[in-house]
Design a protein around this nucleic acid. Structure first.
Length: 245
RNA sequence: GUGGACGGACCUU
């Protein structure tokens, strides 16, 4: 089974759904018993390939064969629903799993948060975030990034600012995605001071920048009319190793 | 020894 699972992982990475499903059929016809790892890989591949019906189909078949979903399989399936825009189904599954005594973890909550963000349900995202903390589940960088994505859509720069403070005070280090999302939020709200302050922080703390982050900074300077800063950025890019203009 | 979450920039209002 492990050999099959590893092969499936490779197929998932290459998004080869047909081959992966064939392999699963092969396992079943040989009388092997795919486990949670097998099924979560299968479901996740279906999700990546935009085949939500396949995800549901195998999730159901899995239960029929007596394989009880574990926490990762549940989360994978919730994410598959989320990606397909099936919010109701995702929440139903979540409730059902909770009723069976399942303890959702950071990834689960982040997946739910992301779903609310995509749906534009900013309040839902906030509530989930609070619920998560109330249950003692620690948010991580990806959790915060998903919140910023939701906030960007809702155009709530002040909430984003407060969250960012909370995040750094909790000792979490922002990554390029965090900074890009935040800058975009500030830029859209024309909060020039906060945006430039963030850039200062990046220099002080030595937070790395990537190409996308440089581009965001540049277009922000253009948007708020800070030509001098833009020139400095451009020169800095020229000196950097991996971000040639 | 194997499985899950970051729809981040410009082009695009």
């Amino acid at each position: 089974v492990v050999v099959y699972n590893v092969t499936m992982k490779a197929l998932r990475r290459g998004r080869k759904w047909d081959l992966l499903e064939e392999l699963l059929q092969d396992m079943l016809s040989r009388g092997m018993e795919p486990d949670n790892i097998t099924y979560s890989t299968v479901i996740s591949c279906a999700r990546q390939c935009n085949l939500p019906d396949k995800a549901v189909e195998w999730f159901e078949r899995m239960s029929e064969t007596g394989c009880v979903p574990d926490e990762i399989t549940y989360t994978t399936m919730i994410d598959a629903y989320s990606r397909a825009g099936k919010v109701e189904e995702a929440l139903n599954l979540y409730e059902r799993a909770r009723a069976v005594g399942w303890r959702p973890d950071t990834v689960t909550f982040t997946t739910l948060l992301k779903m609310y963000g995509i749906a534009g349900d900013f309040d839902g995202a906030i509530i989930t975030f609070q619920e998560m903390k109330a249950l003692g589940v620690q948010p991580n960088v990806i959790t915060y990034n998903s919140m910023f994505a939701a906030l960007g859509k809702a155009e709530r720069p002040s909430v984003a600012k407060a969250l960012f403070k909370e995040m750094t005070e909790a000792g979490l280090k922002p990554n390029q995605v965090t900074l890009t999302s935040l800058l975009k939020i500030y830029g859209k709200a024309r909060w020039a001071d906060d945006a430039l302050q963030l850039w200062e922080n990046m220099k002080e703390q030595g937070w790395e920048k990537d190409l996308i982050l440089y581009n965001t900074l540049l277009s922000m300077c253009a948007g708020i009319g800070r030509t001098e800063e833009a020139v400095m950025l451009f020169e800095e890019m020229g000196m950097s190793e991996n971000c040639k203009p």
